[in-house]
Nucleic acid binder design. Structure first.
Length: 845
RNA sequence: GGGGCGAUGGCGGAAUUGGUAGACGCGUUGGUCUUAGGAACCAAUAUGGCAACAUGUGAAGGUUCGAGUCCUUUUCGCCCUACCA
């Protein structure tokens, strides 16, 4: 028998799809649209297994929707600005542009080998001027709407590389590359006013019913809405400080206040700038500032000022004012009042500096209430609180206290958000230039529309330090309205690029504007967005913001939520290996002898097998998809990557599993030939219900499982239908029967293994346009079913009987089975529970 | 510290609304065919037991005729977030 030559067949179909533009998408109002989008890749060099998984999941859905007569948009592009290109350019002495373009062409050819149903005519690349021109226009539009502004902000500055570092590039307070101690530096930077939409971004989450709950909760926490109030504290001091305001969610604990704590960046700090003790303290604070863990563990430290704060509820109570390392300037007002009895941080602080600890909340039904090492944050009643005593904590106490403070005009109810505005300036070359210039007084001036795009100047050589744009004197000069101005040399955060690319896909070639109104209104929102959960917060939130911002004050565009459905897939994992020198070893350097692993050229020293972790270059536990496709074919890889785990969970790469998927395709091929042979022999026009039932069952299962993203179960369905067909093949079934049923089975398989299915359908001489088969539900209703017989809730037998059997009939049937009867004869039957079509439970004593 | 998710054979995982626990795959074992098999095919495979049977979904309770599924308590693991006032 002829083997399945996946190489020839897959190439044949890929060429055909390409040539016929099978997946070209056009507006067609006679059909329902379906916008299927997977997160576009960063062109890092080669595709990895994560891409294979991501794009296979999306492709199965897109092809399924096409078969169901949806008008499907399934595009692909490149998130092609970003630091890796700069790093590669620095290392290898080349320019980021050609590096990126080379990677794109490699990865594009790799993706094509997967046989994806992509409309490549809509391909976009964020680093091309045709794309970022529109982004610059959007920037200016948002600028006009007041959603973009400039302010001074701290950055992580690497003094050796002369560059700004992202938070994740700061490791233990040092630059990841240079190893130099990172400094805090104040720079003028551009911001998007994302906080303007805090409430909307939060409230709209509840309408996103097709998003994973997990992601919605993460965004909710990130936005971090809290209810509380601002309280003013009178200050007694010789300095010019009359009042300090604090934000609090617990104003009801004011009578327990024993100090006031300020951030070292608080405006009041200016009075202490020359105090050497304060300078020392501030330095100490910034030293323990970088890693998250160290922050959490860091000891509470304070610097006592000569200020004195007055308790607004009782002017007789006066407390000291400290600067404290645990108060942050960028949350609330950079100042808090300390209530040690009911806040752990305050308690730690109070103990260290011997401050008063006055409990004001006690749990109900307690007599002797004392605070020792743990602050009490639970419910209860107020005490030690003068006129607030006996109020119920928290709801009543908080609200009544705020009412009182508002009445006395010493406090104001206030909602606070954790969300901060989005800093979009990056001191980098390989990004979208910010379309702004500065006049001689350093006032920002918009680059006029007709001068867009502001193109990135080409560079030949990449210096190892700084942003090369800074040194391009010719490029920096620009004439606006006859005035010579200096260009902004910062570029945009690459998250901006990916905040609207899905919109661009709707009208990828539109020259006038970033999108075409007609196209956007037809295709948007994305019906199903698929990607890694690592983008659950920033990318998704920024994209949501961007659509809100474009919709803002815009009567032509009102798409606020870009992603109707969201699916977050898990990672692809593989065992990790280390040699005897503790160096990571790649799986393809290893050979297995008698279940033990060795280096291929060293059979003496065994390889240490580590835990399975997500594939990464640094741990060298990656599997190259191109190699795998070359050896097993795209269909087999697609089949395997879906097989082992539910798509939302991590999947374990397994060589055995891959081989078994490959073999399964081969088995399907053999079966296909057997069926073709049968069709030739038996020309009769019979109707075979068994075959029809197998077919209908399969189609129904696959359909349900695709809809629920239970792709691993589809693979099980494939195995089941194979083994059933393989059994029924010897039965005398006529030509027509085989063709009608087998055709439907092949169509139902095609979303997962499109090349194989297409080839078999062609061999079956199916020429009409295929669509998802309708099933005859009646045939799936079984006349005879299994009914479970339980005695006292334990299964004692199963009866195969007519589905409509009555309780009495069933009981008399059971009575005939002595094995079961033994369990209840000579006993009193207390109760019988009969669930038609399912079971009967006889309760005896 | 806060929040979320999860725990089922040797492994990955199935199990609509509470109703035959372990689908499907991997691995393992036995067999057939082969010069050979790391190929193909067939069979077995939760645990204990010759068997009847008993026990089994992290642990302990509870609700129910019946619990992997619901409730309470608890242990462990993973993820996110982080001095959020």
């Amino acid at each position: 028998m002829e083997r399945y030559n996946f190489k020839l067949i897959e190439e044949k179909w890929q060429k055909k799809w390409d040539k016929n533009k099978t997946f070209l998408s056009k507006i067609d109002k006679s059909k329902k649209k379906f916008y299927c989008l997977e997160m576009f890749p960063y062109p890092s060099g080669k595709i990895h297994m994560g891409h294979v998984r991501n794009y296979t999941i999306g492709d199965v859905l897109a092809r399924f929707k096409i078969l169901n007569n949806f008008n499907v948009l399934h595009p692909m592009g490149w998130d092609s600005f970003g630091m890796p290109a700069e790093n590669a350019a620095r290392q290898n002495n080349l320019d980021p542009k050609s590096w990126t373009e080379k990677n794109i062409s490699v990865m594009k050819s790799q993706l094509k080998k997967l046989g994806l149903s992509i409309d490549w005519d809509r391909e976009i690349s964020t680093c091309s001027p045709e794309y970022y021109k529109h982004q610059q226009e959007f920037f200016l539009e948002l600028y006009d709407k007041g959603l973009v502004y400039r302010k001074e902000n701290y950055v992580n500055w690497d003094p050796v590389d002369q560059t700004v570092l992202a938070n994740e590039q700061v490791i233990d307070g040092k630059g990841w590359r240079s190893g130099a101690a990172v400094e805090r530096k104040k720079l003028n930077q551009w911001f998007f006013n994302i906080t303007k939409f805090s409430n909307e971004l939060l409230d709209n989450l509840k309408n996103l019913s097709e998003w994973p709950n997990k992601v919605k909760i993460m965004q909710q926490n990130w936005i971090g809405k809290s209810f509380g109030c601002e309280v003013s504290f009178k200050i007694n001091s010789k300095k010019d400080v009359k009042q300090i305001n604090c934000y609090t969610t617990r104003p009801d604990t004011l009578f327990g206040m024993s100090f006031l704590a300020l951030s070292v960046d608080h405006p009041v700090a200016k009075f202490y700038e020359k105090d050497p003790e304060f300078i020392k303290f501030k330095e100490e604070c910034s030293r323990t500032g970088t890693t998250e863990e160290s922050i959490a563990v860091a000891e509470k430290m304070g610097f006592k000022t000569d200020l004195e704060a007055v308790n607004p509820l009782d002017e007789k109570i006066k407390v000291p004012v400290y600067f404290a390392n645990f108060v942050l300037m960028d949350y609330g007002l950079g100042a808090v009042f300390g209530c040690p009895a009911h806040d752990q941080r305050d308690l730690d602080f109070a103990k260290k500096y011997n401050l008063k600890i006055t409990p004001v909340v006690k749990p109900d039904n307690t007599e002797n209430f004392e605070i020792k090492d743990i602050a009490y944050t639970g419910e209860g009643k107020l005490f030690n609180s003068n006129f607030l005593n006996n109020l119920k904590v928290p709801y009543e106490s908080i609200n009544k206290t705020i009412d009182y403070l508002e009445q006395k005009k010493i406090g104001k109810r206030k909602t606070n958000f954790r969300l901060k505005d989005w800093g979009i300036s990056r001191q980098r070359y390989w990004g979208c230039p910010i379309p702004i210039a500065y006049d001689e007084n350093n006032n920002p001036i918009k680059i006029p529309k007709e001068l867009l795009p502001v193109e990135l100047p080409e560079i030949k050589k990449f210096n190892s330090v700084g942003n090369p744009l800074e040194e391009m004197e010719d490029w920096k000069k620009v004439k606006i309205n006859g005035k010579t101005c200096k260009r902004e040399t910062d570029t945009l955060d690459t998250f901006v690029d990916s905040s609207w690319y899905f919109l661009r896909f709707c009208s990828a070639k539109n020259l006038e504007y970033g999108y075409d109104r007609k196209d956007a209104n037809y295709w948007m929102p994305v019906d199903q967005y698929i990607g890694g959960v690592e983008h659950a917060i920033l990318h998704l939130l920024y994209s949501r913001f961007f659509m809100h911002a474009l919709s803002y004050q815009n009567k032509d565009f009102n798409i606020k939520e870009p992603f109707k459905g969201l699916f977050t897939q898990g990672m692809v994992c593989h065992e990790t290996y280390k040699d005897r020198n503790n160096n990571w070893v790649s799986p393809d350097e290893i050979t297995t002898i008698n279940g033990r692993k060795f280096l291929k050229d060293d059979s003496k020293h065994e390889i240490k097998v580590g835990p399975s972790e997500s594939m990464s270059k640094s741990k060298r536990n990656t599997i190259d998809p191109e190699e795998i496709i070359k050896n097993f074919g795209a269909d087999a890889v697609r089949f395997f990557i879906l097989s082992d785990s539910p798509p939302e969970k991590d999947v374990q790469w397994s060589d055995e599993g891959m081989v078994s998927s490959y073999k399964f395709i081969q088995k399907l091929w053999i079966l296909n030939q057997k069926i073709l042979d049968k069709i030739k022999i038996n020309q009769s026009n019979t109707v075979d219900n068994e075959l029809k039932k197998i077919t209908s069952q399969f189609i129904q299962n696959v359909e349900i499982n695709i809809k629920n993203f239970s792709y691993n179960k589809i693979i099980a369905n494939f195995h089941e239908v194979y083994s059933k067909l393989n059994k029924i093949i010897e039965k005398k079934i006529g030509k027509v029967d085989w063709i009608t049923n087998y055709k439907d089975i092949l169509i139902a398989m095609s979303p997962v293994i499109p090349h194989f299915s297409s080839e078999c359908l062609e061999l079956l001489k199916i020429e009409e346009k295929i669509s998802w088969p309708a099933i005859d539900k009646k045939i799936l209703i079984e006349e005879n079913i299994n009914i479970v017989i339980q005695i006292n809730g334990k299964t004692r037998g199963i009866i195969s009987t007519n589905k409509d059997i009555s309780e009495e009939q069933l009981l008399s049937e059971i009575d005939k089975i002595s094995k079961i009867k033994n369990y209840y004869k000579n006993k009193i039957i207390k109760k019988k529970i009969f669930i038609p079509k399912k079971l009967i439970n006889i309760v005896v004593t």
